[in-house]
Design a protein around this nucleic acid. Structure first.
Lengths: 194, 194
DNA sequence: GTCTATAATGCGATAGAC
DNA sequence: GTCTATCGCATTATAGAC
């Protein structure tokens, strides 16, 4: 593995574990074993390295949405995505970045994060639209809104899990969302004949 | 206002705006105008000051749950809480702390955060139980789970809003949650007589 | 590309006078 | 309680040889 790739890989890990503000170039050097000179040759500033690492983290995280995009029963895809194995105590490597002021205030650093969420929102909207069309969810529900709701359940679930130092709240949040989706199925009772 | 209170107040703001790692004792001094000697007299370390400020932020944030606890129609209280005016781009002053490794890894600093979430969860569970008992939500929904789900919607909504630098995703996430709750009302159609 | 040396600035605190 | 002075170390680089 080239020094360059090693630096990006290491910074990606550290951004996930510690965030931007709390990760120093020295941390990256020590964990990666790459020397000072090499590091500043490939990446003139910490920000440059962080940008590359952030893009890598986004590229890492997005394939998970293939659960949503893939073919098959829409509601089943939604449930598969919501029950997918996740390390709740580590949080989301993309969502995490929104809490780092130096990332959030820097349009260039924030851009990959915004793109990732926009794309995920599109996938969610699409599968929800399908579920409504298939009669699995009540007509009249707004797929774009619901997409925001379900994305939030995941992102917020991480927060609850870390606060309690226990993955259970994350799992309960997702399970509760699935319960709600089931409860929002169109009624199957047949209205009394007029 | 005493120097001590001024320090706590200022640290509270900075923890909300910038987090723990990215806030230095010097930042606190400069914004508060309190001198070095005073500061280290009242708070021997940055961590001591942060703990006091964190407890203040928790005390600030909890009264909002009175929307949930208060008397009246349970579902209306839920909707009131979910549509309450919030500055989505600033995020949650309590939830934010879960993303600071130095807070999350320090049981003493994390404790007030965990307590706040536990208490909020209790309020949510209680109002949801009432809503189910009142026939506003389908019987068989689990109030504890649903409480996690709705708390997550709020916490995650902040993440989406910051990622897009736009409060709309937050509002949509909450609106979508309300839509889902309405869709999860018990069916009012009368089943065909057997 | 990688190395070692150097440096300005900030961080988080301590010391001791008033 | 508040002030000023000082401190050792980390951060975020830069310089220039190899």
């Amino acid at each position: 593995m080239s020094s360059r790739d090693l630096l990006v890989e290491t910074m990606s890990q550290l951004l996930w574990e510690r965030g931007y503000a709390d990760t120093s170039p020295r941390d990256v050097r020590q964990r990666s074993g790459v020397g000072q000179g090499s590091m500043y040759h490939h990446f003139p500033t910490k920000r440059d390295l962080a940008l590359a690492a952030l893009e890598r983290n986004v590229a890492d995280a997005l394939p998970a949405t293939s659960d949503l995009d893939g073919p098959g029963d829409p509601l089943a895809r939604i449930e598969a995505y919501l029950t997918r194995e996740r390390d709740a105590l580590k949080g989301c490597k993309v969502g995490r970045m929104t809490q780092d002021p130096q990332v959030r205030e820097d349009p260039v650093l924030l851009a990959p994060v915004a793109r990732a969420f926009a794309q995920t929102h599109a996938s969610w909207t699409s599968v929800l639209r399908e579920a409504i069309a298939a009669g699995q969810l009540q007509d009249g529900l707004d797929p774009e809104r619901l997409a925001r709701t379900l994305m939030s359940v995941i992102q917020g679930g991480y927060v609850l899990a870390i606060a309690q130092q226990d993955p259970a709240p994350f799992e309960q949040a997702c399970a509760g969302a699935i319960d709600l989706l089931h409860a929002a199925a169109p009624s199957t009772t047949i209205p009394r004949r007029p």
